[in-house]
């Protein structure tokens, strides 16, 4: 039974960055400005979380500063895509490639490190253990011992669920993507909605990145997000903009990723098992595409 607990716990832990990144990307799906540079934002988040945590010693400062920076950069990205009319596909690719290069550069110039940054004084994300629940099988693994960002993700999920149904902003975001002229001729500034969506994306995706670096081993390795941002992209496409489905599929992928670590390294080396989430996503993509029209990543 401990084995089940371990898997559940690890599923939630692996699923958190996927969920955060997917929730991040969702409004950009609504506005049809899907940000494929999600992975890049996560790498930045992972790096800055560690860097600021190391320099200030405080995980709270690290989170706050990273989030604020992400919001600012997100607004700039939004302006790039709206006012400067840069194609969001191009911008996303550049974001992804730039993130890899920039974090390696900063790692070297600021910390003199190449490849990774590990230091005992890098703080870790606070973990919430629920006393009493900790020992309960299944529930213990599922609910206790997770970082605050996991709980943040849950709160954000619920918030988005509510906003999706009833808020004016959600209506505007979806109209901005589905029929921007309709929204514009109703007097709403479409570009503001698009910029807002990008800002939201950057903020949540940077949190996802922090979860990856500070939420596990409290270190930074080049490329440590390992394509998780692209898995989140797949999740968002599969869920077709539905908030509840997004969460469900994110957790499914979290579980799939957790399972790959369960396989005995001597039977199947990790290189092969690491492809499981991506292979699953590809198979799901093929299966789902056969049946209906799906939003595309490079939609005209």
């Amino acid at each position: 039974m401990e084995w089940l607990d371990a898997i559940l716990s690890s599923s939630v832990r692996m699923g958190t960055p996927i969920l955060l990144a997917a929730l991040a990307c969702l409004p950009t799906l609504w506005t049809r400005d899907i940000n494929i540079g999600l992975e890049g934002i996560m790498i930045f988040g992972a790096f800055f979380g560690v860097a600021i945590g190391l320099v200030t010693g405080s995980v709270w400062v690290a989170i706050t500063v990273t989030v604020v920076l992400a919001a600012i950069v997100g607004i700039c990205f939004g302006l790039l895509v709206t006012s400067l009319k840069v194609d969001v596909f191009v911008a996303g690719i550049v974001l992804f490639v730039f993130a890899g290069g920039a974090t390696a550069y900063l790692l070297d110039t600021i910390f003199g490190a190449k490849g990774n940054l590990a230091d005992p004084s890098i703080p870790a994300l606070p973990v919430i253990t629920i006393p009493g629940l900790e020992e309960v099988t299944v529930l213990g693994g599922l609910l206790s011992g997770h970082s605050i960002l996991t709980w943040t993700a849950v709160v954000l999920f619920i918030a988005m669920l509510v906003l999706d149904r009833t808020s004016v902003i959600a209506v505007y975001l979806k109209a901005a993507g589905s029929h921007p002229q309709a929204l514009a001729t109703s007097g709403v500034r479409v570009n503001r909605m698009r910029v807002l969506a990008q800002m939201w994306c950057f903020v949540l995706a940077s949190l996802a990145g922090i979860q990856v670096s500070l939420g596990q081993l409290s270190l930074f390795t080049v490329g440590m997000t390992g394509g998780v941002g692209f898995v989140a992209l797949a999740v968002v496409i599969f869920a077709r903009g539905n908030v509840a489905l997004t969460a469900l599929i994110s957790l499914a992928f979290g579980a799939a990723t957790a399972l790959t670590f369960q396989v005995d390294k001597n039977v199947v080396p990790h290189e092969l098992t690491s492809i499981l989430p991506y292979a699953a996503a590809l198979v799901a993509l093929i299966f789902i595409s056969r049946r209906s029209r799906r939003p595309k990543l490079a939609a005209a």
């Binding site: 209506v171 109209a175 589905s178 002229q181 309709a182 007097g187 709403v188």
Partner: peptide
Amino acid sequence: MLVPEFTVEQNITLGAE
């Protein structure tokens, strides 16, 4: 200028809900 997936009510009130 009607958002196809929205209802009549949502379309009429769009921008001034």
